[in-house]
Nucleic acid binder design. Structure first.
Lengths: 317, 317
DNA sequence: ATGAAAGCGCTAACAA
DNA sequence: TTGTTAGCGCTTTCAT
């Protein structure tokens, strides 16, 4: 017990004793076994986090901010990737729950029924992010992807453009991408405009290459298109590059908008009009909420809406 | 014991009994406690992985490939970020070791003395990646950053360019970035060229914004520069964008090269000449090596050199 | 195919 | 300030 105390900062041990213990530990190369510690104290200090892909700057920002907010409390993130696949998410969450995390943060508000049940039965706080589901499992910190794109459509329409296309993925794997497309269609119909210029650019998540190919295709089949709204800045940048290769001037001949406020869109020439969903803010708020809950016990389910900001740049006129 | 067996696929339990157990488990919302399981069996099925930053597509690719290679064996990655800081790495590795991972994969071959000691004393395989240290701790899968950049200098010089600059970070936080700058200087001196056009663009990791600012500065102070080699494709893209804003033609007036083969460099116009260090290959090979070791027990220390490929594109003439 | 006993390495609770 | 006891929830081992 004295050793156990000596190794835990802030517990009452004679300083000489502690010094002797620490030096012995150093000499022996002793490393505390937190597996045993977790079992006994029923505290793992894990927070399970799932994101669709590790290779996405937006989700990386959320996880980075979450990590910073949790580090001070000694909480370690246990990260998993669903590969935009709800079945994979189910497998992953089952695995993660076995590790007895003290909280769970998932991306998105759509899950398999079994995933939902597992999360509902989990005795720890659950936070859904990057979405605003109608019937949350527990806590939510997110925004409406559909509504955000509607704001973008409104902006483009306000500039007098009417022949507007949407570039996105071709399946429903990426539910947030799907919501964005739905928002596009809804807004176009609200304006009484043709909402059928939908380019399906391949299996989500689509990136720069797919955006470039989609733009090439669009300019071939619908050369009178005046504006393109893309499911992300990455595909928007690809679309912009395709225009540059063809000599189509942006925004003079065609406007391009993206989503996500990725760095590339702020640097490229012309810079890309986008929507900033504040990924770091999502992570920060999730960390704050978890710290509150872990301090004060469970609260009522929290629903925090992030308001995505329209960022108008050079690629739209 | 029967319950324990029933929940573990491939063990001998009467199928009726197993069915009853599984349905009871489902009904109760029972979740196996892998903390207890790990303590008893002394197998956590964790692999600890450290990378400098979560928000970097190269490291993300390595981790993604590693994850895929380990998933089949039920190994879960325990990921930590050092923020390009060796002190932070030390804290992180100490934390991770307490979780009793079955292997450790770190980025880079330079560590604090204490980190080195901890890793040497760890009784599990250690793999250093993304580097080729002279005195590895245990296993290594990586490449020489300095040598890779030398190849790039050779290429640029072979095109008849002599006034060549390097854009990188301004401190030694990013040791791979530092190695790249060293490689630049060594190669320039080998060619008998002036190696003093070194632009320090801010604290590493530098990204697109810093690359753009550095290029602006360079074109102001050394307008006769013929080529710029950047520490990464991200800063190279920033540099390219700065040129486009100023109307400096690339590659006619100035050549630009990067490092890392990020997607942006393959899509932008002009596309960016780069070096591809095959980040996924590093992750795949690390996974293979770990699987071998976990099957067959410890081997001699392995040293696998990845040969980075020069990818010549439009931004250099 | 199932069960009984023991113990993995810690720490909560209580005692001195 | 230090020590004793017990037990966290599993799985290894051996027995039936």
């Amino acid at each position: 017990m004295t050793v156990s105390r000596a190794l835990k900062p802030g517990s009452l041990v004679n300083e000489q004793t502690r010094a002797r213990i620490l030096s012995a530990a150093e000499e022996l190369g002793y490393v505390l076994d937190s597996t045993a510690s977790s079992l006994r104290s029923q505290k793992t200090d894990f927070v399970a986090v799932t994101i669709p892909s590790i290779n996405n700057a937006n989700f990386a920002d959320t996880v980075g901010a979450l990590n910073e907010g949790l580090k001070a409390r000694g909480l370690q993130i246990l990260l998993g990737y669903t590969n935009y696949d709800m079945q994979e998410e189910e497998r992953l969450i089952e695995q993660l729950l076995r590790r007895k995390p003290q909280a769970i943060v998932v991306t998105g508000g759509k899950h398999t029924p079994r995933t939902r049940r597992m999360l509902e039965n989990a005795t720890v706080p659950v936070i859904e992010t990057w979405d605003l589901p109608d019937t949350p499992i527990n806590h939510v910190i997110g925004f409406s992807n559909a509504q955000a794109v509607q704001a973008m459509v409104d902006h483009v329409v306000s500039k007098g453009l009417t022949r507007i296309a949407f570039i996105g993925g071709d399946t429903d794997r990426d539910t947030r991408g799907l919501d964005r497309r739905r928002g596009f269609v809804a807004a176009m119909e609200r304006h009484g405009l043709d909402a059928t210029r939908l380019v399906a650019a391949g299996p989500p998540p689509i990136s720069m290459r797919e955006g470039a190919d989609a733009m090439d295709h669009l300019l071939d089949t619908d050369p009178d298109t005046e504006a393109v709204i893309c499911v992300s800045d990455l595909s928007a940048f690809g679309a912009l590059s395709a225009c540059q290769r063809r000599g189509t001037r942006v925004p003079e001949e065609i406007s391009i908008a993206g989503f996500g406020n990725y760095e590339v869109g702020s640097i490229c020439v012309p810079s890309i009009t986008t929507i900033d969903p504040s990924p770091r803010k999502i992570g920060q708020q999730a960390a704050e909420l978890l710290c509150e809950i872990l301090d004060q016990g469970a609260l009522f389910p929290v629903r925090r809406e992030i308001i995505p900001q329209l960022v108008i740049r050079e690629s739209t006129r």
